[in-house]
Measured scan of single mutants.
Amino acid sequence: MDVFMKGLSKAKEGVVAAAEKTKQGVAEAAGKTKEGVLYVGSKTKEGVVHGVATVAEKTKEQVTNVGGAVVTGVTAVAQKTVEGAGSIAAATGFVKKDQLGKNEEGAPQEGILEDMPVDPDNEAYEMPSEEGYQDYEPEA
């Protein structure tokens, strides 16, 4: 019985440690998101679009440190934060509304985080759909 109880105690310690790591990862992701939003706020009209992409990228980098179902929630929060940063930029006159959601080359930025393969159960990952990809044929 002692062996059984000791095993359960060790398992509990492992769960607590994993929860603490997840909590730490979420806190880091939130900190990076805040950094990115402050970065966007300090940019001029020309830099705002690039700044919004930076927020998304920093958040995406930190999301990889967070495991399990938390990833889905962090990704949703990050996307809403990026959308909010863009709205703030438009409201303050840093950028025109028609410039939001495009990178410096004018290509749409939507789907940055949505296409990231995420499995809350950590069982399997699927690649994003290939609808947006084109076949590449090298020139002879």
Rank of each mutant, 00 (worst) to 15 (best):
K58F: 10
E114Q: 07
Y39P: 00
K80T: 11
A27E: 03
H50R: 05
V26A: 04
A140H: 11
A107I: 02
E139Y: 08
M1T: 00
V95K: 13
A56Y: 08
A53H: 05
E20P: 00
V52Y: 09
T22F: 13
K58G: 00
K10F: 10
A90N: 15
H50A: 15
G41M: 08
A29M: 15
Q99M: 14
V95M: 00
K10W: 09
T54S: 03
K96H: 15
G84A: 15
G68L: 04
K34Y: 12
A85S: 12
G73L: 08
K58Q: 11
Y133W: 07
G31S: 08
K97I: 14
Q109I: 11
E126Y: 12
G101H: 04
A78S: 05
G93C: 01
H50V: 01
E105G: 08
E104Y: 12
E61I: 09
E137I: 08
A56L: 10
G86F: 10
V26L: 11
N122Y: 11
D2V: 00
A90F: 13
T81W: 04
K58E: 08
N122A: 06
G73M: 06
E130Y: 12
T72G: 05
T22H: 06
A17P: 00
A30G: 02
N65V: 06
G132F: 07
D121H: 12
A76S: 04
Q79K: 13
V40K: 01
G41Y: 12
V48F: 14
K80H: 13
A85E: 02
G93N: 06
A30I: 09
G73E: 10
L8Q: 00
D98V: 06
K21V: 14
P128H: 07
A29G: 02
D2C: 03
Y136E: 02
V74M: 05
G73P: 04
V118I: 07
M127L: 15
E105A: 13
L38V: 07
V37S: 01
K58R: 04
K12F: 14
G7D: 00
H50K: 09
G106Q: 05
Y39R: 02
V15H: 00
V3E: 01
P120T: 07
M127F: 12
A69F: 13
I88W: 09
V16P: 00
F4R: 00
V48D: 00
A19R: 02
D98C: 05
T33L: 11
E114W: 14
S9C: 04
V70Q: 02
T33Y: 05
G7R: 03
Q62K: 04
V3S: 12
E83H: 02
V63F: 05
E110R: 05
V55L: 04
A107L: 14
E139A: 11
E83K: 15
A30H: 01
M116H: 11
K34F: 07
T72D: 03
D98N: 06
L38C: 03
A56P: 03
A90I: 15
G36A: 15
Q109W: 02
A89D: 06
V63S: 08
A91P: 07
T81E: 06
Q24W: 04
Q24V: 15
F4T: 00
V49Q: 11
S42K: 12
D2G: 00
K23D: 00
E61C: 01
Y136T: 03
T33P: 01
V52L: 14
P108S: 10
G36M: 07
A107V: 08
S9R: 14
T81K: 02
V40M: 02
A78K: 04
